[in-house]
Amino acid sequence: MIRKTISRIYLVLIVLFLYAPIGTLMVLSFNDSRTSVKWGGFSLKWYQRLLENETILAALGNTLLIAVLSAVIATLLGTSAAIAIHHMKKRSQSICMSIVNIPMLNAEIVTGIAFMLLFITMGNLLSIVGIHFEMGFGTVLIGHITFNLPYVVLSVMPRLKQLNLSMYEAALDLGAGEGQAFFRIVLPDIMPGVLSGFLLSFTMSLDDFVITHFVKGLGADTLSTLIYSELRKGIKPEMYALSTIMFLAVFVVLVFINLRPQEMSMTDRRR
């Protein structure tokens, strides 16, 4: 009994530790005074100003667009790679998997610098041919797709290992085309892995700072790089308001998703 109480207290303390800064930011977003040290009364003015702040809204647009595009492209590339790698011979499989792991295991700063050197050299080479190329939205997108790929491959892989291949072969025997058999038999089975790869990618892209910092060039600010550039002048409280909205929106969505598996297991039983 005592042990159980201690475990509970410990769990609560860790959760408090993880969520204390988030709570702080939420409180600050309702703070009437501009400084983060003093409480000046409850106010919604930062939420109003947020709607008028075009710099922040543009950065938000960039962030979301890059997150969606990079997650979609990484999911397509990563899923097809996972299927191909799954059917390779042991040796080439392990070589491919170590390449897959590089962006995840390597330090972000090293990945960022490597990209920067590549893109600047590419720009120099292309300018000889007369093509203008510089870092911006496109290079940020390439960077995000690359660091998202391992998350997709690693979430799809375990699903492929559980896959029953005879089902796919049976579909072929019964006259389905390869594409038909894939979309109607294989894809539904690996879908949970594909989805979690997509969600992880989206989250990683949204939260990234380091790689974006090195490849964004002069334009294409995301929320993270905008915050970093505001560090000296002090962060605008509108930013707290925006992150509170984003956090609460995702909280609602995740609660909704988390409630669903129980429904699903119920329908499974019914079947």
Partner: peptide, 14 residues
């Protein structure tokens, strides 16, 4: 995973 939706820089700054 949820805390990751509050920006990494802001979380640390808090």
């Amino acid at each position: 995973i949820l805390p990751m939706w509050m920006n990494f820089l802001l979380r640390t700054l808090a």
